[in-house]
Lab assay of single mutants.
Amino acid sequence: MATDAALRRLLRLHRTEIAVAVDSAFPLLHALADHDVVPEDKFQETLHLKEKEGCPQAFHALLSWLLTQDSTAILDFWRVLFKDYNLERYGRLQPILDSFPKDVDLSQPRKGRKPPAVPKALVPPPRLPTKRKASEEARAAAPAALTPRGTASPGSQLKAKPPKKPESSAEQQRLPLGNGIQTMSASVQRAVAMSSGDVPGARGAVEGILIQQVFESGGSKKCIQVGGEFYTPSKFEDSGSGKNKARSSSGPKPLVRAKGAQGAAPGGGEARLGQQGSVPAPLALPSDPQLHQKNEDECAVCRDGGELICCDGCPRAFHLACLSPPLREIPSGTWRCSSCLQATVQEVQPRAEEPRPQEPPVETPLPPGLRSAGEEVRGPPGEPLAGMDTTLVYKHLPAPPSAAPLPGLDSSALHPLLCVGPEGQQNLAPGARCGVCGDGTDVLRCTHCAAAFHWRCHFPAGTSRPGTGLRCRSCSGDVTPAPVEGVLAPSPARLAPGPAKDDTASHEPALH
Rank of each mutant, 00 (worst) to 15 (best):
L62C: 05
P176F: 15
E229P: 06
P95E: 07
A5N: 05
S220C: 13
G150D: 00
S168P: 01
E207R: 02
A33V: 15
A141T: 09
K235R: 13
A121E: 14
T72D: 15
R127Q: 08
R12S: 01
P56V: 07
Q182V: 01
Q212R: 11
D238G: 10
E17Q: 00
M184P: 05
S135D: 15
Q262M: 04
V80L: 05
L273M: 13
I96S: 00
D41P: 02
Q69W: 00
D238P: 15
P109C: 06
S195W: 01
L158W: 13
A117D: 02
K221R: 09
L177F: 15
G219T: 10
R12A: 00
K131S: 02
L10Q: 00
I96R: 02
G268M: 12
V188T: 04
H35F: 02
A134S: 11
P124R: 07
S107V: 10
P115K: 01
G251P: 01
P200T: 09
G251K: 11
V192E: 05
S135C: 07
H30C: 04
L47C: 00
P163Q: 11
D105N: 04
K133H: 03
P154D: 02
Q94G: 08
Q182F: 00
F100P: 10
V206L: 11
E229V: 02
D84M: 00
V192H: 07
G263E: 14
A261I: 05
C55T: 15
E229Q: 12
R132D: 03
A261E: 11
S234A: 13
S168W: 15
Q57M: 00
S71G: 07
A134N: 15
P162V: 03
T72C: 05
P101G: 03
N86A: 00
L177W: 15
P154T: 14
S168K: 11
G112F: 10
S196M: 10
R139E: 09
S153T: 07
N86G: 01
P154Y: 15
P115F: 15
K164F: 14
H30Q: 00
D103Q: 04
V214G: 05
A138S: 08
A140W: 15
Y231W: 11
L122V: 08
P124Y: 15
A193W: 00
R132L: 01
R127D: 03
L75V: 14
N179S: 07
T232K: 12
K52F: 02
E229H: 03
G260C: 10
N179F: 04
L49C: 01
C223H: 07
S248C: 10
E136W: 10
K245Y: 13
G208A: 02
Q44M: 00
Q172M: 15
H14F: 05
A265C: 07
V206R: 04
A160M: 02
F236K: 02
F236A: 10
T183C: 15
S99N: 08
P154Q: 01
K133R: 14
R127S: 08
